[in-house]
């Protein structure tokens, strides 16, 4: 874990993407200021930050759409640039916009971009069918995409990005404006890709998505990578801890005594019929806590876990809320 713009250390698992001290200015505005990070094979890395934080500009440089003013991007060992061809074979870009052709069918969109990626013949045909199935559009594959719902277009947008099995899949806010059902499908798809060994760079301003999908998260604000690490590492930065609240009837004092004896519980406060416990890791401790309290004669009516989240991390690091 780190909390400044220093050079990112190798992940030790074969880095697919190395971003080193990227700087990009637009006139007087420095949109990206010295950002460095690395992504290993099979890792999902999230860039979490509010709108305008610089996420899309970083993505644009990683995908070779714009050139950095300073710094380098290396994909699978090859340096990325606007006119570079070789490193672009390793990436699959899913832009924030619905980058599909409305007059073409889903299948025609997939075939077009597959060909541009160098795929041909039976290999292309088979992969198109496979991806169409993966994104749940088999039944509508021959319909013009202008007739699709927003969620279907989003899924096709992702399907095009992963058609050629890229080493690095870049997803720029892929769930913006998507209904809950499609959103869940998209998130499940990304989880599967990570399992298959694909490196994923995922930008979002939805804290829940970053927590669910990402192995490591970079917190970005005003073009600066404020901190990066696993969710738990980032949470620890805030000094905040997990809490379990138990409420019910019976002998709360006896239950409090019994719970204080647990190694995972660092503090127990009693307030009439309610116990408030401070624990190291609430999800792993909760079963033992409930059993011990019940055994001590407390009849539980409600159990509530409170954990510090990335919202509080962002607030801690930047002094403002994530959705500001």
């Amino acid at each position: 874990m780190r909390t400044d713009g220093a050079t990112a250390e190798p992940t030790g698992r074969g880095d697919v993407l190395v971003v080193d001290h990227l700087v990009r200015r637009f006139g007087d505005l420095t949109a990206v200021d010295g950002v460095s990070f690395r992504i290993a094979a099979g890792e999902t890395y999230g860039l979490l930050g509010p709108n305008g934080a610089g996420k899309t500009t970083i993505i644009s440089m990683v995908a070779g759409l714009i050139a950095p003013d300073e710094g380098t991007v290396t994909v699978a060992g090859e340096q990325m640039g606007r006119t570079a061809v070789a490193p672009k074979r390793h990436i699959g870009l899913v832009p924030q916009d619905l980058a599909v052709y409305p007059e073409l069918t889903a299948r025609e969109n997939l075939v077009l971009f597959g060909r541009l990626q160098g795929m041909t013949g039976p290999q292309l045909t088979a992969r198109v069918a496979e991806v169409t199935e993966l994104i749940g559009l088999t039944g509508r594959a021959k319909d013009p995409t202008k007739e699709y719902s927003g969620g279907m277009k989003r899924r096709l947008n992702i399907g095009i990005g992963l058609l050629h099995r890229p080493t690095l899949l870049i997803l720029d806010e892929p769930t913006v404006g998507v209904d809950p059902q499609s959103r869940n499908q998209i998130l499940e798809s990304v989880e599967r890709l990570s399992v298959e060994g694909m490196a994923v760079l995922y930008t979002t301003h939805y804290m829940e998505e970053a927590e669910r999908l990402c192995d490591r998260i970079g917190i970005i604000d005003s073009g600066v990578l404020q901190a990066e690490g696993t969710r738990d590492e980032l949470v620890r930065l805030t000094g905040a801890v997990d809490h379990i609240r138990l409420s019910g009837t019976g002998d709360t004092h006896a239950a409090a005594e019994a719970l204080r004896a647990l190694p995972s519980v660092s503090q127990v406060d009693v307030d009439r019929r309610e116990l408030r416990l401070t624990v190291g890791d609430a999800p792993s401790a909760v079963a033992q806590v409930v059993t011990r309290a019940t055994d001590a004669g407390m009849s539980l009516a409600d159990v509530e876990i409170t954990r510090p989240d990335l919202e509080s991390v962002f607030l801690h690091l930047t002094g403002k809320a994530l959705r500001d």
């Binding site: 070779g64 759409l65 061809v85 916009d97 971009f113 990626q117």
Partner: peptide, 9 residues
């Protein structure tokens, strides 16, 4: 943007 991310000049 997607076209420009393709492996071609």
């Amino acid at each position: 943007a997607r076209l420009r991310s393709m492996p071609m000049r």
